[in-house]
Design a protein around this nucleic acid. Structure first.
Lengths: 215, 215
DNA sequence: ATGTTTTTGTGGTATTTACAACAGATTTTT
DNA sequence: AAAAATCTGTTGTAAATACCACAAAAACAT
């Protein structure tokens, strides 16, 4: 497994050397940024959790992504061609590193902070891309059963174990897979009835060898 | 709209100066690469069309992405944590630039080819990310109607016109939106009955002002 | 030009899913 | 420690969707 550069740790050590670094703190539910206009800014989440969401005209919230530590975000990752505003909101108290594009490169040549950051930025971005691709692949399943089994199968491979623990709440999982929570519960029950999995709260044991068979 | 660096044009002009550049041609239906093992290679599509697909044990093909000119792809964009192989296949005859990671930076310092490429790679990647995010956002719609209207609305904003032409076949669109084609046709018909759109083949006119309202 | 493949289009039906309503358990906030 | 909020779990029902079969139109290949 590829080791991920830990921005938080690195920032603590080196940010004092750099004059233009800006770290902002956000309380739960505060808006970190929006994607409506170009800001030529990138953000790296140092602490806490956040999500990217869209609010439709009925006030319904649709969550597009959950961001975790070391995740990179900002409007640079989006085409601005939509009339609905995207918000990044702090899910828990957050600490965010703000990176204006233009100054990323223009900082003092000897600034070890920016040199190191620049060197690691592509990896951070690629890591983020892998996350997005991973989710997209889950979403290319047409059925709830397919989404669930793909998700569980991936978890199982990642942890190299048939016993997996879903790291988010089942409510969030339903959001993440873009399915109705209660419909998901029914499928989870059916998977238990069919002896494909066993389950206790968010702890799930995969009982079959190739659960993706026939999905 | 951001101008995209055209790799094909650039390659034609400069690749002769570089010894390690490799361009490969693929015939329709040939496999360009797989994502099962780490290859430390990145690919840029210069000509033609390709798609990323997964084949399940029943031999069913599930298309994850369609790649177009200037698109960057490779296993670097994926976590390798799945036991199902991903293939990139030429949809039409293709020309592909192959970039081994390690040599991207290690080529002769004066090689203008690699210097230019390196400078533009982040943009190419970000552009690809925007595409992926765009699709993910479409897929976060729970209903066929929502997916269709989001898609049409985006097309309309992009072209700044109420009359849009779907650039792919309706079959491919259904794949792209991960919905059954015939179910999609029914929704398209319903949208016409409800006077939200009018349609002739793949030419669609949006009749309402805010079609996303209530989606 | 002719046969082949792909695409568009429609209708029927079984299945899946979303939605609503609710209650107890668990977690978080005050 | 109490109150509030979130989460898990279940049920019933209406609505949406996938799947099947089929035919005409269009695009493509020989």
């Amino acid at each position: 497994m590829k080791r991920i550069f830990d921005v938080e740790h690195f920032v603590e050590e080196l940010s004092k050397n750099c004059a233009i670094t800006e770290i902002k703190k956000f309380k739960k539910d505060e808006i970190i940024t929006t994607y409506l206009i170009r800001r030529s800014q990138m953000f790296i989440l140092l602490k806490g959790e956040a999500y990217l969401a869209r609010y439709d005209s009925d006030g319904n919230r649709r969550i597009i992504y959950y961001f975790k530590k070391n995740d990179v975000f900002g409007e640079a990752f989006y085409k601005i061609h939509t009339n609905r505003e995207l918000f990044v909101v702090a899910k828990k108290d957050c600490e965010v590193l703000m990176l204006p594009y233009d100054t990323i490169e223009s900082c003092n040549k000897d600034c070890i902070f920016h040199i190191t950051l620049l060197k690691n930025l592509p990896d951070l971005i690629l890591n983020r891309v892998a996350d997005i691709n991973y989710r997209t692949e889950l979403l290319t399943n047409k059925s709830i059963k397919g989404k669930l089994l793909s998700y569980l199968n991936n978890l199982s491979i990642e942890t190299n174990s048939k016993k997996v623990e879903i790291p988010i709440s089942l409510s969030e999982l339903a959001d993440y897979l873009v399915i109705d929570r209660t419909a998901m519960m029914k499928q989870l029950k059916k998977l238990q009835d069919d002896k494909i999995i066993s389950k206790n709260k968010n702890k799930i044991t995969i009982l079959k060898d190739d659960i993706l068979n026939g999905v």
